[in-house]
């Protein structure tokens, strides 16, 4: 299971990368693998405000639907538009080209609640039990 060191993680299997007060968000390798072949993604409109823990989008495989939740509160300033036409990228490069949105955080200190890589790895190990 690929868990990059430089990212922060949620218990809902999203990752976040801090970039100058903004947070780039995607789903983890674990989430993509669990869902299987992803066939559809849909996000809130650009400019929407999302609260921490609130859904900012939906991803679907053939037989499952999953919501994706904001790791921190803020305004969605960028959306990865090409992902709509190539949802399979999520299964191929979930930490790279298949990022989902960029959130301009209301309160950058909110990220302190997120897990670092070792903590997320430990969390996954606990989940498996």
């Amino acid at each position: 299971m690929n868990i990059p060191d430089d990212l922060l993680y949620t218990q809902d299997h999203e990752w976040g990368r801090i970039e100058d007060g903004t947070l780039r968000v995607g789903i983890t390798d674990y989430a993509a693998t669990e869902l299987g072949d992803i066939v559809f993604v849909e996000f809130v409109e650009k400019g929407s405000h999302v609260a921490k823990g609130e859904a900012f989008g939906t991803i679907e495989s053939v037989k499952a639907v999953s919501e994706v939740y904001a790791p921190a509160s803020g305004t969605v300033t960028q959306i990865n538009e090409p992902l709509a036409d190539t949802p399979e990228l999520l299964n191929q490069d979930c930490y790279g080209d298949a990022w989902m949105v960029v959130i301009e955080m209301d309160d950058p200190s909110e990220v302190k609640d997120l897990m670092d890589a070792p903590a997320y790895e430990e969390f996954l190990a606990q989940e498996a039990k």
């Binding site: 559809f40 679907e60 495989s61 053939v62 037989k63 499952a64 639907v65």
Partner: peptide
């Protein structure tokens, strides 16, 4: 196809 709209999944 598009079964994720339907009751047995959603």
């Amino acid at each position: 196809t598009l079964a994720t709209r339907e009751q047995h999944i959603r």
